[in-house]
């Protein structure tokens, strides 16, 4: 009776992690928006003020945590969208690998932004 199998078995992990990352994001994003926009309402954000804040490890943890979780959630979501486009499911492995590479690069790139505040200078400068 079984004519052919549609799709590849699996897919529970990406689905679950999308939801787990969403729960983390809910907390982290609201904290991030609060910190950047409302905590010192009206006071200008400067290099010095950010540096002073990042002295407390908790802020660095929020920023780095948010970076990792948001990149995972966003790109994993993009993967869902891409895999729904007709004909792309056959490329699912290539898409997954490509997005992982993009994600790791993005996280390193993003971490570099905070490096000057924590260690005085960025890890790398592209110029």
């Amino acid at each position: 009776m079984r004519q052919r199998q549609y799709g590849t078995t699996g897919g529970a992990w990406p689905w679950l992690l999308q939801r787990v990352s969403a729960v983390f994001l809910l907390v982290l994003i609201l904290l991030h928006l609060w910190i950047e926009h409302f905590m010192h309402l009206g006071a200008p954000i400067t290099f010095a003020s950010v540096k002073a804040r990042l002295v407390h490890a908790v802020f660095a943890v929020i920023d780095y945590g948010l970076l990792i979780v948001v990149v995972f959630h966003g790109l994993n979501g993009l993967r869902t969208v891409l895999l729904e486009i007709p004909f792309l499911p056959h490329r699912s492995r290539a898409i997954t690998i490509g997005l992982w590479v993009l994600g790791v690069v993005t996280v390193i790139f993003g971490m570099d932004i905070l490096a000057p505040f924590l260690w005085g200078r960025p890890w790398f400068v592209l110029k």
């Binding site: 290099f47 990149v71 966003g74 790139f109 592209l126």
Partner: peptide, 24 residues
């Protein structure tokens, strides 16, 4: 979701190029 993802990349690029262009 997709628009926020696009924004995320703008956000990271704007901040990092600001720092790379000349620090503080």
């Amino acid at each position: 979701g997709l628009l926020i993802l696009v924004y995320l990349y703008f956000h990271l690029i704007v901040l990092s190029s600001a720092i790379w262009a000349g620090g503080m």
